[in-house]
Design a protein around this nucleic acid. Structure first.
Lengths: 189, 189, 189, 189
DNA sequence: CATGAATGAGTCTTCATTCAT
DNA sequence: CATGAATGAAGACTCATTCAT
């Protein structure tokens, strides 16, 4: 019986090395060392290095989605929903800074596969629901979901890049951005 | 004397290949082919592949800075200056989408050298002057220049990523973002 | 005590895979699958893959010898003995085509060990007795046993190679060859 | 310009190593050493190790065909033609013993490609012409060309295997075999 | 100066072998 | 005894770099 713990160890080691050096500069033996696992063991769990990259990308995209697209409180308004979404994204970036940088830099990787595309689509779908809701209520401009995603994710990436230098994202900056992002998508009042 | 035309052809070919496949996945013979130049010729202009990457990164960072940090009109306010800065950044992303993606994805590359760091510092310095100016005038919050850079550049990257899917950045989105970014850095009124 | 049935299953599976792909291209897990046995079980019966190859080679050589070198009828002449020998060889090739091809292609294998050499020597010894007998009777030329073996085995290999294409060795061809081989070794009359 | 000499050196080195150890047991660096060439150079001339094996097989098959299927003298009878064919085959085996063993052991290799099949077909075609000629003259039995090829090549392989032990094929054995082979294919008189 | 054939260090991947269950 | 997950040494192949033309 394959120990599932090994798979997780490998994914963790791969995240560290891919994030630090990029996919192609990461040597499989190095990933093995970072995972405290033998080289051959990696190939028992993933058929190729590309498949490992694909699985890692999909796993973190799904985790990101699970965090960000969790249900809103029943009483939430679109404005509150956007705020919550943004805070969840920032929370993810704070909790998993390496994963956040990995997602920022590898989203267009050649090894992004169907699972990755599905996760991207699920995220867009969540954004679409939010945008449609806001539009129906007359508080948000009509907006393609990709635009909303790009806006939120781009700002988040900027903050994460700042954090890589500053060490941490100041909470005030997150809060200010929140207000700012709402203004970008809200109908003028 | 080395023909400068070849150097430019090589840098152009390298941008195309690096942007499409990443630094390590780009083979020097492939860059040579994309540049319509022989392999050996590349080594006549750049001592190593890393040096080529470093030169390419620095060249585009400098071009970005030259565009973005050009002098403001004498009559500009901080608000107008920020608007202009943002529009210049968006203009760069529109004019050189490949270069924009290259800068977004390779900023933390292992081959980023001193020239690259100097360009980054120059950009921060420009941002610092803008932030200090706005703070002295009482219209902007005190802000580390890296935060300002991250905010602008992150949003730009988000839009560029959207453009990679949608094909073009809608001008209205750029204008809305401008307003939004000002709100993020302006003192509350 | 080790179940002998497993040993035979492994030898059968190994014959199939070695014959189809060659010794080095045959992976032990593949042999295990072809034998319906776990990998570890193979190593319980044979210390190494080489030892398995050696045992397989020796086993079939011994089987070949047992078939071919069986006693002749008391009334046989050298001519009849050669005919019988040849028919026994052809019978072996018909009954065990995979083993025949395996023996043809692996006789000089690096893993051919002492048992294999002993079997080869036994075959030569049988040929020597036949050649000496014929020479003493004045009906056969003086002939090194290796030459007689090579002649018979080479012709057999040629027919087996034909059978691999045609599906079966025509009996008339076997009979004609018999005559022909006698002429090659008989004293001119 | 690629030096053609290198290609030949590689083919020679590969013949030596493949013949001695078999295709899969032959390591590419070993072939490179035997060819006095760097590993990478092999891959400049042959895309894969399999392609090298294929080219080597085809080259020697074609050489074999060129030697064996050369035109017969105008005055030749079928009997003389068969004699000449057999002597040419034996001459090939004497001149290129390593190539002969290589052809004997690798003919059914997984890497035998179209060129190899074409050469095999050409040889069969030559045999067909000989067999048809003899049949039309009433001196040879009707015989599929594959059977004729198998007969000649099998006997040759047997002699070559003997030579690997004895060092050389005795000329008398070659001559005796010649007579013997004619008897196998001639109509009974 | 430009060229591209040659080089060999380094990469991904396989597979014989081991050993805890 | 049987099993098959884990191991890591070894192999095929790539590609940055050199240098003779």
């Amino acid at each position: 019986m394959i120990a599932l713990g090994k798979r997780l160890k490998i994914l963790d080691g791969a995240l560290a090395v891919f994030e630090a050096k990029g996919f192609h500069a990461a040597a499989v033996p190095e990933i093995a060392a970072a995972s405290s696992v033998a080289v051959g063991t990696i190939y028992r769990h993933f058929p190729t290095k590309e498949a490992l990259g694909e699985a890692l990308l999909a796993a973190w995209q799904e985790r990101f989605n699970a965090d960000v697209l969790a249900p809103y409180p029943a009483t939430a308004t679109p404005r509150a929903a956007l705020r919550l979404t943004w805070r969840r994204m920032a929370g993810f970036a704070r909790s998993f800074p390496a994963a956040q940088r990995f997602l920022d830099l590898h989203h267009h990787a050649s090894y992004a596969g169907p699972a990755s595309a599905a996760a991207e689509a699920a995220l867009h779908q969540g954004m679409r629901e939010l945008a449609d809701w806001g539009r129906r209520q007359g508080v948000m401009k009509p907006l393609p979901p990709e635009a909303l995603t790009a806006l939120l994710r781009g700002s988040l990436a900027g903050l994460a890049r700042y954090a890589a230098v500053a060490g941490v994202i100041p909470q005030t900056l997150i809060d200010d951005m929140e207000d700012c992002l709402w203004n970008a998508v809200a109908t003028r009042t």
